Amino acid sequence: MSSSRSTRPHHSSRLGSGSGKKSKASQSTRQLIESLQTHRVNTLTELCRIERIAASCDSEDDARAFQGPMTAAWAYYVSSNQMLSELRGLTPNYPFCGDILSHAQGLVRNDPESNRSWNLAWLCLVKITDDDLISSFAGSEASRPEMWGGRQPSAEEAQQLAACFQYEWEMAVQNMLRHWQATPTWY
């Protein structure tokens, strides 16, 4: 693993080692996993905090115990609309378009490369950025008559509003991506 941008859970290289040990996950790991499974933790900041703990596990049993619950917690974070709520919290002037996130989820789920990470939220944010979804959706949203009190906006008006959408939405996505010092990928 030579890339400084790529991270792999500290434990992942040991997962297939077949050590034969049958010890249980530690008490603190079980508590964190329970908080993931019961969705007591469902914010970007807290999920990232637990993800960092999971990635730095010294115990192979703890590392294995985190895999499924961490993956499921990220999927729940996205599907429960918590991610959209947090994106909208970062875009107070021009609320983030939910269709962007829905479209990104569809693209990620249909992308064979999506198995490179356990983190659906990160995959969606990267897809939004890499596929320039904000630019596409900002233009179409700004042209909708509903944005203009039912009237059709002029091209210039729509362009100005699209630029405002694009700026604020891109800043929100970049702000969220800053939570990962290294990408949460398997390889």
Rank of each mutant, 00 (worst) to 15 (best):
T38W: 09
T38D: 15
T38A: 13
R40P: 03
V41H: 11
V41T: 13
V41R: 11
T43L: 14
T45Y: 14
T45F: 14
E46S: 14
L47I: 07
L47Y: 10
C48A: 14
C48I: 12
C48H: 14
C48D: 13
E51L: 04
E51K: 00
R52C: 06
I53F: 13
I53P: 08
S56A: 14
D58Q: 10
S59C: 09
E60R: 01
D61L: 01
A63S: 13
R64L: 10
A65P: 04
A65I: 01
F66I: 07
F66D: 07
F66S: 06
Q67A: 07
G68S: 11
A72V: 07
A72I: 05
A72G: 07
A73V: 10
A75F: 13
Y76K: 04
Y77W: 09
Y77Q: 06
V78Q: 07
V78W: 07
S79I: 00
S80E: 05
S80P: 00
N81H: 10
Q82G: 00
Q82M: 00
Q82D: 05
M83N: 07
M83P: 11
L84Y: 03
E86V: 09
R88D: 09
R88Q: 15
G89R: 01
G89Y: 06
L90W: 08
L90P: 08
T91S: 13
P92D: 08
P92I: 03
N93K: 10
N93L: 12
Y94H: 15
Y94T: 09
F96K: 02
F96P: 01
F96G: 02
D99Y: 05
D99C: 03
D99I: 02
I100W: 02
L101T: 01
L101H: 01
S102C: 05
H103M: 06
A104R: 02
A104L: 07
Q105L: 09
G106H: 05
V108K: 02
V108P: 02
V108C: 03
V108I: 05
N110F: 04
N110M: 06
P112S: 04
E113Q: 11
E113N: 12
E113H: 09
S114C: 10
S114R: 09
S114E: 12
N115R: 01
A121S: 15
A121L: 12
W122R: 04
L123N: 13
C124Y: 12
L125S: 08
K127Q: 05
K127S: 03
I128N: 03
T129C: 15
D130M: 05
D131N: 13
D132V: 12
D132F: 13
I134H: 11
S136I: 15
F137D: 04
A138D: 09
A138S: 14
A138Y: 08
S140T: 15
E141P: 09
S143Q: 06
S143H: 04
S143I: 00
R144Y: 10
R144N: 15
P145E: 07
E146R: 12
G149E: 05
G150E: 06
R151K: 02
R151N: 02
R151Q: 05
Q152K: 03
Q152P: 00
S154Q: 06
S154M: 05
E156K: 00
A158E: 09
Q159T: 12
Q160I: 08
L161T: 01
